[in-house]
Design a protein around this nucleic acid. Structure first.
Length: 220
DNA sequence: TACATGATGCCCT
DNA sequence: GGGCATCATGTAG
């Protein structure tokens, strides 16, 4: 398990978004460790990316995007949900990667509770993906309960208890942080690229990255 | 299975 | 006051 460093995030968000696929997002809680494999990300750039929050310049809401790399930018959306990003590029240069979906790896019962999902909905014998993907054809019905935990940016934040008050402007690269990203050696075989989800401006750019064949993405 | 819709609150103009 | 990097639920097919 190797903690990702600030250097990892100190580069173009498009390269970070791709490199984050297959890494583990970790949350240390009093009740145990939560972990999910990153299977879907989106890059948001600085000037020129009309869909990025940084496009309007630095504000009280988005200041983290303009800070040093490796910090959590958490924002509240649609009156109900939070979304987690990590800042990229050097101090003063905006850019980030949005975490869109995780494959549940550890702390599944705690995450299900946080999401309001009954444990009876989850088939713990379902084939959770292991290195290398993709496995034999997946029975999506058996994965339905697991998929509800973190297959979407709002869902994964709820599962991890991520909120703006708790986590915005928090370092993800500090050994003391309760929110980290680690490399466990998992090798991603195939990366797919496509247009970002849920935006209207600058919608055509292929800035969404996902692990090919992984059933835990928000959508194929 | 696919699509449309309502809920909901904060930020920025 | 408008718009939003979403989700769960309902209806139609």
């Amino acid at each position: 398990m190797k903690l990702l460093s600030a250097d990892f995030f100190n580069r173009d968000p498009r390269r970070v978004a791709r490199a984050l696929l297959g890494k583990l997002l970790i949350r240390k809680t009093p009740r145990g460790i939560l972990a999910g494999r990153i299977v879907e990300t989106e890059a948001y750039l600085g000037k020129g990316d009309e869909a990025a929050h940084a496009t309007a310049g630095k504000t009280a809401r988005n200041f983290v995007l303009f800070g040093p790399p490796g910090f959590a930018y958490v924002y509240f959306i649609y009156g109900n949900y939070y979304c987690l990003n990590v800042s990229c590029l050097p101090d003063g240069v905006p850019g980030c990667v949005l975490f869109r979906a995780l494959e549940p790896v550890a702390g599944i019962e705690q995450m299900a509770r946080a999401r309001g999902i009954s444990l009876s909905e989850i088939d713990f014998r379902a084939p959770v993906l292991r290195d290398p993907e993709p496995p034999q054809p997946v029975d999506r019905k058996k994965l339905a309960g697991l998929r509800k935990i973190s297959s979407g940016p709002g869902r994964m934040c709820e599962a991890f208890g991520i909120t703006r008050a708790r986590d915005n402007d928090k370092s993800l690269v500090s050994a003391r942080s309760d929110l980290q990203i680690v490399d466990d050696g998992y090798r991603v075989r195939r990366v797919l690229v496509g247009p970002r989800i849920g935006i209207t401006k600058s919608a055509a750019h292929p800035l969404r990255y996902l692990i090919g064949g992984n059933p835990f993405v928000s959508r194929p």
